[in-house]
Nucleic acid binder design. Structure first.
Lengths: 130, 130
DNA sequence: TTCAATAGTTCGTATTTGTTGTACTACAGT
DNA sequence: ACTGTAGTACAACAAATACGAACTATTGAA
């Protein structure tokens, strides 16, 4: 059991961060990890969204977050100890994470308030006028 | 020739923005459009990166930016008039665009300074330790 | 008005990336 | 050693992306 790979802070790219956080499940996970200081294991997030996410898919998402440099993961017995690397990242890209999380919050509020399900990125095109 | 589709500001999602800007070519284009107030046509960007980008690919990138709500595009004769929707977006998601562009700038400086080509998101994994 | 040139788009196909069920590995407690 | 739990690897299929070739709209000249 090799230790898991984590990119050094200077190898973390903006593109990588944006891509990782352009998935609704992954922002949800990351936002949660960043908000609460203590670590979470993967299974905590089996229901981050409305519908149940398969275990293997979740595992894939965690790997994506880790390889983008957004989270740090280490084995703790049988579970996984996941923590946000936000403070590190904030030192390299000041304000980036905060802005994304804040924007995400704005969006969630406007979505629930309007009572209409906002189309996630993956959803059908809103109105493909072509 | 229908007018092009542009999502209304309240339909723009954070996920959509992040996804659109998680591509090196697209951030380059968007950053450029946002920096200079006057509009650009597509062909201006045939060489945004080191290597030449095919016309059809560029067209696809502009469509992606437009559908994510990041730019506004209108026909002006035979060309395309592209402008950044950043001020609109900034009203809905304050600071988001600024933070992304600023982070991008930080990254570009650190990359050129180090004299090493930073791997773009699409590139091979830096060191897949598994 | 017809022709050629220019700027973009569409389409088809090849490649890449993402999703998820099933089978597996590692660890803890019995 | 055996069982349950947490997570990973693999493989098959689905979806998104890249890009060359063919096409469309518009302009300006002949």
């Amino acid at each position: 059991m090799r230790p898991l790979f984590h990119p050094p802070i200077e190898d973390i790219t903006v593109e990588g961060i944006l891509h990782a956080l352009s998935d609704p499940v992954r922002v949800a996970i990351f936002t949660d990890l960043t908000a609460s200081d203590d670590a979470h294991n993967c299974s905590t997030f089996l229901n981050v969204t409305e519908k149940k996410i398969p275990k293997s898919t979740l595992s894939h998402h965690f790997k994506a977050l880790r390889e983008a440099g957004l989270i740090r993961a280490e084995r703790r017995g049988v579970e996984m100890h996941n923590t946000s690397r936000c403070s590190e990242i904030d030192r390299r890209f000041p304000g980036l994470i905060a802005a994304i999380i804040s924007a995400h919050k704005v969006q969630m509020e406007s979505t629930q308030g309007a009572g209409k399900k906002r189309a996630a990125r993956k959803g059908k095109p809103v109105a493909v006028n072509r």
